[in-house]
Amino acid sequence: MIDKGYVVTMARYNAWQNRQLTPIVTAMDKDALDLNRGAFFGSILGTLNHLLWGDRMWLARFGADVDVPARGDTTQLNPTIAAWSAERFQVDGRLTIWASALRNIDLAGDLTWYSGGEARDVTQPMWLCVSHFFNHQTHHRGQVHAMLTAAGQAAPVSDLVFMPPDGAA
């Protein structure tokens, strides 16, 4: 089972990764961001939108103060990288607040939610859902990293062990 320390560390890792990605993708033109690069969610912006959509969905399930996104095409959440960047910053802040307020006991027990994809209620251990949440982020950011590299961009370092200490730049 995971604990609060893991959750806080992974929330910091998420924010660090997004802070590194933002200047790279905001400097790219819309055509490059929207180009279907053969990834599961197509484009860089489509994948970033799906990831943001998933973060909002899971945070809402965890009881964080975020709006629940509409189902629909998760790749179309934000039409521009500027809109994505503003929302990404806000959601990362909400994630940090949620992680900071978490107690170890909050990771015990089960979480039950209605899954639109499965069209049924699903129940899983809370710690497993939180682990999945962070794994989902890492997985899709890895896809973005690969697409950026293929597009000739300097993708940022993504190794967790090289994350600056808390409070460092």
Score class of each variant (00 low, 15 high):
residue 1 M to W: 07
residue 3 D to A: 09
residue 4 K to C: 00
residue 4 K to M: 00
residue 5 G to S: 11
residue 5 G to K: 02
residue 6 Y to Q: 07
residue 7 V to W: 00
residue 7 V to L: 01
residue 8 V to S: 08
residue 10 M to D: 02
residue 11 A to F: 06
residue 11 A to Y: 07
residue 12 R to N: 14
residue 18 N to Y: 08
residue 19 R to F: 03
residue 20 Q to N: 08
residue 23 P to W: 10
residue 24 I to E: 12
residue 25 V to C: 00
residue 25 V to T: 07
residue 26 T to Q: 13
residue 26 T to F: 05
residue 29 D to A: 05
residue 30 K to V: 13
residue 30 K to F: 03
residue 33 L to Q: 04
residue 34 D to G: 02
residue 35 L to P: 00
residue 35 L to Q: 14
residue 37 R to N: 06
residue 38 G to R: 03
residue 38 G to L: 10
residue 38 G to A: 11
residue 39 A to H: 02
residue 41 F to S: 12
residue 46 G to M: 01
residue 46 G to R: 06
residue 46 G to K: 07
residue 47 T to M: 11
residue 49 N to M: 08
residue 49 N to D: 11
residue 50 H to Q: 09
residue 52 L to G: 13
residue 53 W to D: 13
residue 53 W to V: 09
residue 53 W to K: 10
residue 54 G to H: 04
residue 55 D to V: 01
residue 55 D to P: 01
residue 56 R to D: 03
residue 59 L to R: 09
residue 62 F to M: 11
residue 62 F to S: 01
residue 64 A to T: 01
residue 64 A to I: 03
residue 65 D to A: 03
residue 66 V to F: 08
residue 68 V to R: 15
residue 69 P to M: 06
residue 70 A to E: 15
residue 70 A to N: 02
residue 71 R to S: 10
residue 72 G to Y: 01
residue 76 Q to K: 11
residue 76 Q to G: 02
residue 77 L to Y: 07
residue 78 N to H: 15
residue 79 P to L: 08
residue 81 I to L: 06
residue 81 I to A: 08
residue 81 I to T: 08
residue 81 I to F: 05
residue 83 A to G: 03
residue 83 A to I: 01
residue 84 W to R: 09
residue 87 E to H: 10
residue 88 R to I: 04
residue 88 R to M: 11
residue 89 F to T: 15
residue 90 Q to F: 15
residue 90 Q to Y: 15
residue 90 Q to L: 11
residue 90 Q to K: 15
residue 90 Q to I: 14
residue 91 V to C: 09
residue 92 D to C: 12
residue 93 G to I: 03
residue 95 L to W: 14
residue 95 L to V: 14
residue 95 L to P: 05
residue 96 T to C: 07
residue 96 T to K: 11
residue 96 T to M: 14
residue 97 I to E: 12
residue 98 W to F: 13
residue 98 W to G: 00
residue 99 A to T: 00
residue 99 A to K: 01
residue 100 S to R: 14
residue 101 A to H: 05
residue 102 L to F: 00
residue 103 R to V: 03
residue 104 N to T: 04
residue 105 I to R: 09
residue 108 A to W: 01
residue 109 G to D: 07
residue 110 D to W: 05
residue 111 L to S: 10
residue 112 T to G: 09
residue 114 Y to E: 14
residue 116 G to P: 03
residue 117 G to F: 09
residue 118 E to W: 06
residue 119 A to R: 06
residue 120 R to S: 12
residue 123 T to R: 13
residue 124 Q to N: 07
residue 127 W to Q: 10
residue 128 L to R: 13
residue 128 L to T: 05
residue 129 C to I: 01
residue 130 V to T: 04
residue 130 V to D: 10
residue 130 V to N: 06
residue 132 H to V: 02
residue 134 F to W: 12
residue 134 F to D: 11
residue 134 F to R: 06
residue 134 F to L: 09
residue 135 N to R: 08
residue 136 H to E: 14
residue 137 Q to E: 13
residue 139 H to V: 05
residue 140 H to E: 10
residue 140 H to P: 14
residue 141 R to T: 15
residue 143 Q to I: 08
residue 146 A to D: 13
residue 147 M to D: 10
residue 149 T to N: 08
residue 150 A to I: 04
residue 151 A to Q: 03
residue 156 P to D: 04
residue 157 V to Y: 02
residue 157 V to Q: 09
residue 157 V to C: 07
residue 157 V to A: 10
residue 161 V to Q: 10
residue 161 V to K: 01
residue 162 F to C: 03
residue 163 M to I: 15
residue 164 P to K: 00
residue 167 G to Q: 01
residue 167 G to K: 02
residue 169 A to D: 14
